[in-house]
């Protein structure tokens, strides 16, 4: 009987009238592969009537440009964006409000993750970390302060003129006993303390390759991809998670306003925000989960956040607030740190 129902459902689905399609746009590279394998495929298996097409985009700015262009007549249903960019998109009214009736799993997201009245919901956090070359660095750094150690003179890559810098500011401010909402002066000072050690503020081709090739000893970069490269590229890249804790580059999922298939899209968003999807994704790609009910195995937590001390010190940001100062902070980093070092 069940087999007959399934066949019937499949027939109906392939008949066209009932076939549903969700077009998702998001990050490219390993993220796209993992997202396809660990989130989209299980979702499609559980919802045979819905096909999910994933369209990788070079970066969040490009996604935003595409969404803006199609605002009147969108072909995309769901967008995965850097949370700061998602907030920008909400200013332009590009996303629809979600609710717990349509997407029950948003109830499992913490308050900070639900931005713009649930128009965008954070789903993963990729920690900022210090990467090191395991061949040239025998004693891995343990603290953000190690960046200022004179032995790294001319041996650091620090791309700070973007979200990396915006995340490092609250970390360094907190280390100096301050609060990023009051003043970021201590962070600018701390950046200028390690500034003379920086070889390049614009590592090419990216902040991972320069460590892999030995061009620098240390690089300030994202944990998830570094862990992946560690496992696949012979372990040359090591990841040091500083004891003072870190903050993740936060990605958010949103339903596009005027989505051609909003019902199916909401189903997909609900699945993507659920504990199962986030737990698997965290385990496979080392992006921290946002769903509060996810339980991580200790060794997974270690690779995402670092040791117990770092785990306890892990921070989250008030992104809504930070998005208001985002460009101002980048301007300060460019003008008061990079231009002088």
């Amino acid at each position: 009987m069940k087999a007959i129902t399934l066949t019937l459902a499949a027939l109906l689905a392939s008949g066209g009238a009932y076939a549903q399609e969700v077009n998702v746009i998001g990050f490219s590279g390993v993220f796209a592969d993992n997202y396809q394998k660990f989130i989209i495929e299980p979702f499609e298996a559980a919802n045979p009537g819905i096909t999910v097409n994933y369209q990788p985009s070079k970066n969040s700015a490009e996604t935003l440009a595409l969404l803006t262009r199609q605002a009147a007549n969108p072909t995309i249903d769901v967008a995965l964006l850097d949370i700061a960019v998602a907030i920008k998109a909400n200013e332009a009214g590009l996303f629809s409000q979600l609710d717990e009736a349509g997407v029950p799993n948003i109830a499992q997201a913490p308050d900070w993750a639900r931005v713009d009245e649930d128009r965008s919901v954070a789903f993963s956090q990729d920690n900022l970390a210090i990467l090191y070359n395991t061949e040239t660095v025998t004693e891995p750094p343990t603290s953000w302060n190690d960046l200022a150690d004179p032995k790294y003179k001319g041996r650091i890559a620090a791309k700070l003129g973007d979200t990396r810098g915006v995340i490092l500011i609250p970390i360094l401010t907190k280390m100096a006993g301050g609060n990023y909402k009051d003043s970021i002066e201590p962070a600018i000072e701390a950046m200028n303390a390690f500034g003379p050690n920086v070889l390049t503020w614009e590592p090419a081709p990216d902040c991972y390759a320069v460590v892999q090739s030995g061009e620098v000893d240390l690089s300030i970069c994202w944990n998830g991809r570094a862990q992946y490269l560690h496992d696949t590229q012979g372990g040359t890249i090591g990841v040091a998670a500083p004891v003072e804790g870190s903050i993740g580059q936060t990605s958010a999922i949103s339903l596009v306003e005027g989505s051609p298939d909003a019902e199916a899209a909401k189903k997909f968003i609900d699945y993507a925000l659920g504990a199962e999807a986030q737990g698997t994704f965290a385990e496979k790609s080392f992006y921290g989960p946002v769903n509060t009910t996810v339980e991580l195995a200790p060794e997974v937590a270690q690779r995402i956040y670092g040791g117990p001390e770092a785990q306890a010190a892990q921070m989250t940001l008030d992104w809504q607030w930070v998005s208001g100062v985002y460009s101002q902070w980048i301007q300060r980093i460019n003008r008061e740190v990079i231009a002088f070092n």
Partner: peptide, 16 residues
């Protein structure tokens, strides 16, 4: 790329 992020020109500013 060659400026290591230290060379600020109008082109790089527009891009950023």
């Amino acid at each position: 790329l060659m400026g290591g992020g230290r060379v600020f020109v109008l082109g790089t500013e527009v891009f950023s």
